[in-house]
Structures are given as structure tokens and as C-alpha cells.
């Protein structure tokens, strides 16, 4: 406790020292952000500059990020690996109104996710945000339907393939960029019209690859943790319930 207080005071002093060197809040004057804001729309015909920064100008960073995501999901899958056992769904949603409303909410959330992905380079959104919304729709199936529905909707091996496909497609699109645009992750498609779905060149492809990877990765994570929560048939008695 005393140690933390001393270290905290030292850290506070360092932070204060660093803050003094920063420009006043609201007086941004670095060239890189301003340059991107100025050239992104004329050069790439994309209206969402954050999206185009993620998938085009800083595409290599995003590639690294995709593989962080991929590696950690592989790590979780390995850590939570269990012996193949019969699993009993220890939970069940019995309320009909909740199931009915839930089904509507699942469809709405799924469509919202697709929409956020599709217009990622036009309006706020993109593969990461939309992928999370899509994965949320799958998790909602579990919340309003129970594990049995969730499990029958999501066969495990295609899911892991989809995750690997998303990460692989991003890397391969980078090589296509070398062939057709002369640089890794270069933009190799026609630019189209700014503000429409046909714009920003090859960014839509990278955007969808990311959405597939993020969605599949999160659903794999949900599945792995839910699998732990589901008890083996032998250790579960209806009177006790789970745990």
C-alpha cells in the first residue's frame, strides 16, 4: 500500500511532466492527421476517413491487429480445450414472449451488423464494429433461445474456418495489392464514386474480410466459454442445477 503510494506519486510526477509537453487540449496541430483529412476523400473516394485510415493508409497495422485477434482466439481455444463429453444444456428459456421478441431482436441486430459493415467506408462503421454487432446477434441467440439452439446454429469447425479465412483473406489481398498496385496492401480496384457503396477501391474487400474474421473470432470465444459453462452430463443433476 505504501509502496503503491510512493510509486503512484512518482508516476503522477512523470505524467505531469509529460502533460506539460503536450499541446493545449483542442489545439491539434500535427501534420499527419490533417494531411489524411485533406487527401483521403479526393485520393481514395472514401468519405469515412477513419475507415480508410484503418484499411488503406495504415492497412499494415490492421493486418497485425487481425493476427493478434487470431492468435488470442487460438490461445483461448487451446487453453479451454476439453475432452469430448456429452454436454447437457443447463439452461433453458421457457418464456414465449422473450423467445419471440428475442427472435426479432436477433434478426434486427444481424441486419444492423451487416449494414454497419457494408457502409464502413462511407459512414461511421466498418468491419470491426459491424463484426462485433454480428457476433452479438449470435450471442443473443444463446440468451433468448438457450444453448441447444445456439449450438445447432453454429457448427464449430466451419466457424473456425471462417475465422482463419478472414485473417488469411486480408493477408492475401495484400499480396494482390503487390501484383496490381505495386505495394503490399496497395489499393488495386477502381475507386468508384465517393459516398456510394462502390467507392474506395479494394477497401470494401478488406472491410468484409475483417468483418468475417472479427465476427467468427468473437463467436468462437463465446462458444469456448459457453462450453466451459455447460456441465458434463454425468456431473449435473436436475435438482441441483448447474454448479
Amino acid at each position: 500500500m505504501i509502496g503503491f503510494a510512493i510509486a503512484g506519486a512518482g508516476f503522477a510526477a512523470l505524467v505531469f511532466w509529460a502533460l506539460v509537453g503536450l499541446p493545449d487540449f483542442g489545439h491539434y496541430h500535427w501534420p499527419y492527421g490533417n494531411a489524411l483529412n485533406a487527401i483521403a476523400t479526393p485520393e481514395r473516394h472514401a468519405t469515412n476517413v477513419v475507415g480508410i485510415t484503418v484499411f488503406d493508409y495504415r492497412g499494415l497495422d490492421t493486418l497485425g491487429e487481425e493476427f493478434i485477434l487470431f492468435a488470442s482466439v487460438v490461445g483461448v481455444s487451446l487453453l479451454l480445450r476439453k475432452d469430448p463429453e456429452e454436454h447437457v444444456p443447463a439452461d433453458e428459456v421457457r418464456s414465449d414472449p422473450i423467445r419471440a421478441l428475442g427472435a426479432v431482436a436477433v434478426v434486427l441486430l444481424f441486419v444492423l451488423g451487416l449494414w454497419v459493415v457494408a457502409f464502413g467506408y462511407v459512414t461511421p462503421g466498418g468491419g470491426f464494429q459491424g463484426g462485433v454487432a454480428l457476433a452479438g446477434a449470435f450471442l443473443l441467440v444463446y440468451v433468448v433461445g438457450g444453448y441447444r439452439q445456439y449450438h445447432s446454429l453454429l457448427p464449430h469447425s466451419p466457424l473456425e474456418m471462417a475465422e482463419a479465412f478472414g485473417a488469411g483473406a486480408f493477408a492475401i489481398l495484400g499480396f494482390v495489392g503487390i501484383v496490381y498496385a505495386g505495394a503490399y496492401l496497395g489499393n488495386f480496384l477502381g475507386l468508384g464514386n465517393a459516398g456510394s457503396l462502390y467507392s474506395a477501391g479494394s477497401v470494401p474487400l478488406l472491410n468484409w474480410a475483417t468483418a468475417i474474421e472479427v465476427c467468427a473470432a468473437l463467436v468462437v470465444l463465446f462458444s469456448e466459454f459457453l462450453k466451459i459453462y455447460m456441465l458434463p452430463a454425468a456431473s449435473w443433476t436436475p435438482e441441483e442445477g448447474p454448479r
Partner: peptide, 12 residues
């Protein structure tokens, strides 16, 4: 407009 680079970094 505000800096898009730090927003992309925050997303990451």
C-alpha cells in the same frame, strides 16, 4: 475535422 489516425489507433 479531428485527427482520424488516433481514432483508428483507438479502434485497434
Amino acid at each position: 475535422a479531428v485527427d482520424p489516425v488516433v481514432q483508428a489507433l483507438t479502434l485497434t
